[in-house]
């Protein structure tokens, strides 16, 4: 029964949806302080290459690679963040775009390490490694009535789902904490926030580094789920794709980029003929959204509307759902 429901292809798509959601969150965090960073693709690449190279060349376990890749991206986030945060608005966007290009050019040209434009293949696959470990303990997926393949994709999906929910939960809680309120204040008015005693440099670097960490983390997951990476995966198009998750879904609340990533990853899979024109449609979506609804599809009003709908049902039990945006 279970075996028929589990289709590796759907699970694969679902896994990419989850990775894209994490990427969408990474751009949302920096946007929540009012800064537009287009470096997410670059940080993702740093995470992916670091983890892939460590696991390929030193036979380290995937978890070590993931941690190292994430931290490396975060480190770059701090290094890039501190000087660039003197810049505002469009300047920051261009510098981060330039940073992404420099990273890509380095990946292409450092052939002794990165194999250049060909990319790295044979990266340890997360699902297969888990299966190998479990088999070492005498576990066989046949017990669950699953084939190896199905089991591999299901573990990846469940693992990513767990991770994604954890990340969303973390940032939802952060939003209603001291840090989140500082971010919101900086977004509204930097000068006012500063005069209220908020250390804006600290919080801006924090947001930038958090975005870099999350993007790097998504990159490491990407490497170990796909088992193959090349510099083209982290080029300008990836940066724009991540941007459009936030533009389409909305960047006021965390559910915006989550919805954007979900919708825009599933749409080309469901409507195959769209796939070919995907980027043309992306372009049009961006233009139309900016003209008609610059805050994105999901904003605070929509969330509140959903809450009142849900809240009416909840009132019977005397609970209120107005906390925790």
């Amino acid at each position: 029964m279970l075996a028929e429901l589990i289709n590796p292809y759907y699970l694969q798509v679902a896994s990419f949806v989850l990775i894209n959601i994490i990427l969408g969150i990474s751009i949302y965090i920096t946007l929540s302080t009012g800064q537009l960073s287009l470096a997410s693709a670059g940080f993702m690449g740093i995470g992916a290459y670091t983890s892939a190279l460590l696991t390929l060349n030193f036979d380290l376990p995937i978890i070590v690679g993931v941690l190292a890749g994430t931290l490396m991206a975060g480190l770059f986030g701090v290094i890039i963040g501190i000087p660039t945060l003197r810049l505002k608005g469009v300047y920051l966007a261009i510098v981060t775009l330039g940073f992404g290009e420099v990273i890509r050019v380095i990946f292409v040209n450092w052939e002794s390490l990165t194999k250049g434009a060909v990319g790295l293949s044979g990266i340890p696959h997360m699902g297969r490694e888990i299966l190998k470990t479990l088999k070492g303990f005498g576990f066989d997926p046949q017990v669950l009535g699953l084939q190896n393949n199905q089991f591999i994709f299901m573990t990846i999906f469940l693992l990513l789902l767990f991770i994604t929910i954890g990340i969303i939960q973390f940032f939802r809680r952060q939003n209603s904490s001291r840090v989140g309120r500082a971010f919101a204040a900086i977004k509204l008015d930097e000068q006012a926030a500063e005069s209220m005693g908020i250390n804006i440099t600290y919080y801006k670097v924090l947001a930038f580094a958090q975005g870099a960490l999350v993007a790097g983390f998504a990159g490491t997951l990407f490497a170990h789920v796909l088992a193959y990476i090349s510099p083209a995966d982290f080029a300008y198009h990836r940066a724009v794709e991540i941007l459009i998750f936030a533009v389409f879904g909305g960047s006021e609340v965390i559910w915006g980029p989550v919805f954007g990533a979900l919708f825009l990853t599933v749409m080309p899979e469901v409507l195959r003929f769209i796939s070919e024109y995907r980027y043309m449609i992306y372009g049009l979506v961006i233009i139309i959204m900016m003209a008609v609804r610059p805050q994105g599809l999901i904003d605070v009003n929509i969330i509140n509307w959903i809450k009142t709908k849900v809240g009416k049902r909840g009132q019977k039990h005397g609970t209120s759902n107005t906390k925790n945006l």
């Binding site: 941007l243 980027y279 049009l284 233009i287």
Partner: peptide, 9 residues
């Protein structure tokens, strides 16, 4: 962002 959309298109 809008002109990025035009460029992609």
């Amino acid at each position: 962002i809008s002109t990025i959309g035009v460029s992609i298109f």
